[in-house]
Amino acid sequence: MSNPWLLLIIAGLFEIIWASAMKASDGFTKIGPSVLTGVAAFISFWLLAAAMKDLPLGTAYAVWVGIGIIGAALAGIMLFGDAATPARLAGIALIIAGITMLKLA
Score class of each variant (00 low, 15 high):
Leu36Cys: 10
Ser34Gln: 11
Met22Cys: 14
Gly58Asp: 09
Leu74His: 01
Leu55Val: 14
Leu7Glu: 11
Pro56Tyr: 03
Ile69Thr: 12
Ala41Val: 10
Gly27Cys: 07
Thr85Cys: 10
Gly27Trp: 03
Val65Trp: 10
Asn3Gln: 11
Asp82Pro: 08
Leu94Asn: 06
Leu102Arg: 00
Ala51Pro: 01
Pro4Lys: 00
Ile77Gln: 08
Leu36Gly: 06
Ala24Val: 08
Asp26Thr: 06
Leu79Cys: 03
Ile69Lys: 01
Ala97Val: 06
Ile17Asp: 04
Gly81Trp: 13
Leu6Asp: 01
Gly58Val: 07
Met22His: 11
Ala84Asn: 07
Ala60Leu: 01
Ile16Val: 11
Ala93Leu: 08
Leu6Arg: 04
Gly71Pro: 04
Thr59Phe: 05
Lys103His: 03
Leu48Gln: 00
Ile9Phe: 11
Ile67Ala: 07
Trp64Tyr: 05
Ser20Asn: 05
Leu57Phe: 09
Thr85Gly: 14
Leu36Pro: 12
Gly32Lys: 05
Ala75Lys: 02
Pro86Ile: 11
Met101Pro: 00
Ala40Lys: 00
Thr37Met: 09
Pro86Gly: 14
Gly58Gln: 06
Trp5Asn: 09
Met78Leu: 14
Gly98Val: 06
Pro33Gly: 02
Leu47Tyr: 07
Leu55Asp: 10
Val65Pro: 08
Val63Lys: 02
Trp46Gln: 09
Gly71Ile: 00
Ala11Val: 04
Thr59Met: 13
Ile77Cys: 05
Gly98Lys: 01
Pro33Glu: 00
Ser25Arg: 02
Ile70Glu: 02
Ile16Gly: 13
Ile77Val: 07
Pro56Asn: 11
Phe45Lys: 07
Glu15Asp: 15
Leu55Thr: 05
Gly91His: 08
Ala93Arg: 04
Gly38Arg: 05
Gly58Ala: 06
Lys103Ile: 03
Gly98Ile: 03
Trp64Leu: 02
Leu47Asn: 12
Ala97Met: 11
Met22Ile: 14
Thr29Lys: 08
Leu8Val: 07
Lys30His: 14
Ile70Trp: 06
Ile99Cys: 07
Phe42Met: 08
Ala50Leu: 14
Ile70Val: 15
Ala93Trp: 00
Ala87Leu: 15
Leu74Gln: 02
Ala105Ser: 13
Leu89Arg: 00
Ala11His: 11
Gly12Phe: 02
Gly71Leu: 07
Ser20Pro: 08
Thr100His: 15
Ala51Cys: 11
Ala62Asn: 12
Trp18Leu: 05
Leu57Lys: 05
Gly32Asn: 00
Ser34Ala: 04
Ile96Val: 15
Leu79Gln: 02
Ala24Ile: 12
Leu102Glu: 07
Phe80Thr: 03
Thr100Pro: 03
Leu104Cys: 03
Glu15Trp: 01
Ser34Val: 05
Ile31His: 11
Ala49Arg: 00
Ile77Arg: 06
Ala84Arg: 06
Ile70Cys: 14
Ser2Met: 12
Lys30Arg: 15
Ile92Thr: 10
Ile9Met: 12
Ser44Gly: 12
Trp64Gln: 01
Pro56Gly: 04
Ala11Thr: 08
Ile95Gln: 04
Gly32His: 03
Ile17Phe: 06
Trp18Gly: 02
Gly71Glu: 10
Leu79Arg: 00
Ile10Val: 13
Ala72Met: 00
Asp54Asn: 12
Ile92Leu: 14
Pro56Ile: 02
Ile10Ala: 14
Ser2Asn: 15
Val63Pro: 06
Ile92Arg: 13
Pro4Asp: 04
Gly27Glu: 01
